[in-house]
Design a protein around this nucleic acid. Structure first.
Lengths: 374, 374
DNA sequence: CTGAAAGCGCTTACAG
DNA sequence: CTGAAAGCGCTTACAG
């Protein structure tokens, strides 16, 4: 028969006497109050500094706090008050620089606002996001920041909306970072950047150099981010009245390895036809592509140009340095926290959105095609 | 005059009626209990699954939970129970791959144990560690994991020991990851790897190739990690009866930029004398060194060999791939969580230590010196 | 400027 | 297997 797993724990009926053990026990407001000769209310006021307290009283309390080594219990505080001074962030994998930098921004901004940061990774587990939102809801995080492209399936969006409403009832906010907004009326903030626009701009840059057959490699097909980037890629062609050979669009994943393997294969079997430039769905993919080209004896950019997306530090560090679309990753994280803070100011405000800018960074991996068209 | 910053908030005297607002309000155990026609104790038992409950009762409760969209309040749970199912981790900078990978391990292991992870970065702020330990103490984290080399100053160690004892009184544990243990008797765990041994091994490898003048670059002098690595470097020389020219030891920071700048400078002014190999204090420094050598027209490894330490993924990705000391970073993070969990099993156990293995990984950045000394 | 007291939402030793 | 009730450690509207 299962029994409570507790150690020889305290009995509520007979609370342990704080002083029966060797050494100082952990103190409570109660004890600080006694030591300082004031009420617990006064101790609380000194600690929070949000009510006027006489200088002398304050001194006595601070003294007592120091003597007893008192450390406030955040859980009691959260339960009695209402805010937890905690924000949660959910990413796919904290190891991926894209997420690491956003998480970094979230953390810095949170720290500046005096908040702590609960960081969670889904590691690609299906439904992981939903479970983690629930976990952060249990923690009553002041805000839950969901980072990265999402599946754009109506049923899934409905589940997300339910979570957002549940958090909203708690006075907390869901903030989507890098994925499209939920339906109007759902209490969720959005920090977004222009995937379609960035993809359009960098594709147009390649077209302007004279490239006519550009391979688009990588990105999970169901992801909103991928869809928007491909849309921008197509639109750039359409703006110039060019057709896109569908064989040149090769979705997959966001990994370096995918870029490497797919291009190696296409080079071998020629199933995508010729191409003079490659658009990697993100920088990691692009770096894998460059490796594949190099191993096939092709020079970047003399024989084939390569571009990426995101502008993680790696992009500037590889040789040749990668032309890519710059995303202000840290700023996005910061913006998400700021937005959540701003939203908490309203009791029932409308869905709010913040856009961050994007621009093409031209480095050394792009050049006109070897045998310019037009 | 300052006034409480509250919104039009609830009065404790007249608690809001859960149903006076539009839409479902957030539910409590109390309400779940009423809806299911049982006591709050029973609801709690069903939720925690740690006591026997009749199947039919369980069903009714689960039904009510679902209908009301009930989400337990972790703070109330933490206050009433004792564990928080939360671990805290403190690193210097989550952007640095060394820390990112350890944090990753912590997070994965924590997730597997059903815990959430509070991630904090000090960003090199003096005293930041101490403040963050306090913050995590406030949160009553089940464990506080402090990652990275520490300053080995007695006063600082004493402060750390005080924090460890304070946490210990709470039933929580401080775990040091990659830094030396505190005095015996202080309730702190340690997950360590052999800095001196790894440095000895890779230095000996270079000496074995015939190198006699090896430059050691980078690492903050006050840090325990740096001191241990230099000690291993010296010991390797001593074992072979070789003297170390002090000019060859060039401490600094752990950054790529430092490696680049210092070597560029030494190459220019010759103030460290000649050298045929460079030991970067970590992989980042080593990569910076390689860049400086390349720009000076020196080939790696034909003219100069280069080694690093840590074996972050970058080491395998640069060209030439870097010979380095492999550290099982993710495993260290996991080990730290496991250790904390194990330690919580004991009420007052001794300081416990876990060592993880280290080994040299030979890649393409090392070769015999161009004009081998004997 | 300060205190007495209620209430935050759970868990668990007791007592059936 | 289940319920009544105490207690976890704070904060804050009231009432001086």
């Amino acid at each position: 028969m299962p029994t409570p797993q507790g150690k020889p724990s305290r009995s509520p009926r007979a609370p342990r006497t704080p002083r029966d053990a060797a050494g100082p026990k952990r103190a409570t407001v109660q004890e600080v109050a006694e030591a300082a000769g004031v009420s617990t209310a006064t101790v609380s006021r000194v600690l929070n500094g949000n009510y006027p307290v006489a200088a002398e009283t304050r001194r006595k309390v601070e003294q007592a706090v120091r003597n007893l080594g008192y450390v406030v219990n955040a859980h009691a505080r959260a339960l009695a008050g209402s805010r937890t001074r905690t924000v949660g962030i959910i990413v796919q994998d904290i190891i991926d620089p894209f997420y690491t930098f956003i998480a970094h921004g979230v953390q810095r901004q949170a720290a500046e606002d005096g908040k702590l940061c609960l960081v969670c990774s889904t590691y690609g587990v299906v439904g992981g996001e939903l479970d983690l939102i629930d976990a952060l809801h249990e923690q009553r995080a002041d805000a839950v920041i969901l980072v990265g492209g999402g599946v754009d399936d109506p049923a899934y969006r409905r589940k997300l909306a339910d979570r957002a409403r549940a958090l909203g009832r708690e006075g907390s906010w869901l903030v989507l970072c890098g994925r499209p907004a939920l339906e109007p009326g759902v209490p969720a903030g959005v920090v977004d950047y222009d995937n379609a626009g960035g993809a359009h701009a960098i594709t147009d840059y390649l077209l302007g150099l004279g490239h006519r057959r550009i391979l688009y490699v990588g990105g999970p097909e169901q992801l909103s981010v991928h869809q928007a980037r491909v849309a921008g890629f197509r639109r750039a062609h359409a703006s110039r009245g060019l057709e896109v050979d569908e064989r040149l669009i090769q979705p997959g994943t966001f990994s370096r390895r995918f870029g490497y393997e797919r291009v190696t294969q296409l080079l071998r079997d020629g199933s995508a036809g010729e191409f003079t430039a490659v658009f990697g769905a993100n920088d990691g993919v692009a770096v894998g592509v460059m490796q594949a080209l190099r191993e096939a004896g092709l020079r970047v950019p003399q024989d084939v140009s390569v571009v990426g997306y995101d502008d993680i530090p790696l992009a500037a560090e590889v040789t040749p340095a990668l032309t890519t679309v710059h995303l202000p990753l840290e700023q996005m994280g910061r913006e998400a926290v700021r937005l959540a803070v701003a939203l908490r100011g309203e009791s029932d405000g409308p869905t709010d959105t913040r856009h961050v800018g994007t621009h093409v960074v031209i480095r050394d991996s792009t050049a006109p095609p070897p045998d310019p068209a037009s």
